[in-house]
Design a binder for these strands. Structure first.
Lengths: 334, 334
DNA sequence: CTGTTAGCGCCTTCAG
DNA sequence: CTGAAGGCGCTAACAG
């Protein structure tokens, strides 16, 4: 490192008395090389401390060995576990992960996607994008391979990992479950910008068809964070003290509501029942433990990466991986 | 994208009737360009959908606008929050983050670092590396700028973000705190491979000097995960039922111990006191809430990124950012 | 088995 | 204000 500039193939070739191609072949284990020259070249490589330039390689081979992954919030255990799954598969295949954490800010997601194109990464996994279709789709067209998690896409653009029904279908199931258990006034914290979550109006309509009445005022739309859930809980319970159950769009939100409720003197589940979603560790550790929907988060990441690799290796078929969200009955409902 | 190959500077130049340099200048907003040609070129760029190749740029400018970040476990909220902080600063500066999640596997950390060099990223932040010095240091020498989090490095190699005393000093403080509160038989779950955590023997020795006796058998060394803590709790409490307090190397571990203890019929804190470290959300939400050490995790990420940018922009001075870990007294200690 | 010739797409340098 | 030449470090495609 004392020398000013990088050791190149040419340096090695000169020193070894061979051509750059021979060195290149040794480095890449390509073509036929006599054992003698191979070893000789390897010695020189070691002595000079040569390391191939990924930038130069990328330029000529058009491959970066990088996968892009966008998530709205890496701090959310739901997403960090997905990333973990992706990472495991990627690293097996010799790939690294370029992480884009948009921090629940669509503008930032857009900016990041805008500067990452097919010369930066070989493939892209978009998790729960918060961008509207008309800005998202054009940004994806520059890429050779795309996989979407938790959001359906035009089939020619990307393969998808999706919940069996819809991501938000579980809110509907949760409401029915609560109704069956005798709860009458059910509140709902919808997740803002989640394109998969059931919209509030639709939920109300469908439940009405089942004879379950939820009022508009009992619902609110928030970011998928604990803090947002906490604030939602405070407001909902202050404005509508008669609520006897609240459905959170995910565990973080439901747990925030739980904290608010306890602070306000409600007993869970006697005074207020709670249901979340995602089954994060925290959900199982609070008292009472939170009834929620289990989601195979790690597998979602693994499957997304697999679907991406399939696309990257020329499989242009649209493929889908459907996962199930299963109710985990715990103590937050009577 | 129907066309087989990428639109290049040359395509734009030809179409616009100018040289590639002119186009390049327009793209990069460099040098003096007449308003007329600038606009003309921009039109062509838009029409052709030209996007500069990052690979080609990287080759000639030697800059990738990528920061490498290695963490042992992205699923650990401690690290995902640090990454969040790094990401925020990076994206402000137009940088993206290349994430290496070694999954608590040193071999994987090594493999990943080995294929990421200064032609891949412009700078590297190494968080809580689990690699021994003799394999880690050589891997870092290839990089232009390195920052270490939670592990001291030779000053010429990297700037550092470190806990004021040592990362593991808090275990010592925790033991003293427990002793002051009347606990006599204090167990300790040390974090395996953490280079900053106080070694078990040292902790015992120092505490002995303070008149606090901890037996070797009351301690164990585990991975920094909830599951590992749970297993440790089961074993420690089964083998040494007389323990009246246990210190976890971090919150995840301490919370695992708590769960095990409750399952085994212990009341917290009456039968068993618990102290963790990191102050993750989960710690504040269990019952009773966990006494722990607050760590400014997000700021650690921010500072690490700032120190890295300083190094990348030619500041070769060794710099250090020291953060404090402050005890948060909650309900898991009488 | 090994070497030669051409670029990959862009920017740096130096002329105009 | 604009252009021509050259090269970043590597590999693909041909020769030998």
């Amino acid at each position: 490192m004392a020398n000013k500039s990088r050791v190149t193939l040419e340096d090695v070739a000169r020193e070894a008395g061979v051509s750059t191609m021979t060195v290149s072949r040794v480095v890449n284990n390509t073509g036929k090389i006599s054992q003698a020259t191979r070893e000789h070249v390897q010695t020189i490589i070691a002595r000079l401390g040569y390391r191939p330039s990924r930038a130069a390689r990328a330029l000529v081979t058009n491959k970066t060995y990088l996968l892009g992954v966008t998530v709205p919030d890496i701090t959310n255990p739901y997403f960090s576990t997905i990333v973990h799954g992706i990472e495991d598969v990627a690293s097996e295949g010799g790939y690294s992960v370029l992480l884009v954490n948009s921090n629940e800010t669509p503008a930032r997601e857009q900016a990041a996607l805008n500067q990452i194109d097919d010369s930066t990464i070989d493939g892209l996994i978009v998790c729960s994008s918060r961008l509207p279709e008309d800005v998202l789709l054009p940004l994806l067209e520059h890429h050779r391979a795309v996989v979407s998690v938790n959001r359906p896409f035009p089939k020619h653009l990307a393969s998808c990992v999706l919940a069996r029904y819809r991501y938000g279908y579980r809110s509907y199931l949760a409401a029915r479950y609560l109704a069956q258990h005798g709860y009458q006034r059910i509140g709902y914290v919808h997740l803002t910008r989640s394109f998969m979550a059931m919209q509030i109006d639709e939920l109300i309509t469908r439940l009405a068809a089942d004879g379950i009445a939820i009022k508009r005022e009992w619902t609110t739309s928030r970011l998928p964070t604990w803090e947002a859930g906490y604030a939602a809980g405070k407001e909902l319970l202050a404005d509508h003290p008669a609520l006897d159950a609240i459905i959170g769009g995910n565990d973080l939100v439901a747990l925030g509501v739980m904290h608010a409720a306890v602070e306000m003197g409600r007993r869970i589940p006697e005074d207020l029942a709670l249901i979340g979603g995602d089954d994060i560790l925290l959900a199982s550790q609070v008292t009472p433990p939170l009834t929620t929907f289990h989601v195979p988060t790690y597998e979602i990441g693994v499957m997304a990466a697999r679907l991406l690799f399939a696309r990257m290796t020329g499989d242009t078929q649209y493929r889908e991986h459907i996962y199930d969200e299963t109710l985990v009955e715990r103590g937050s409902v009577l």
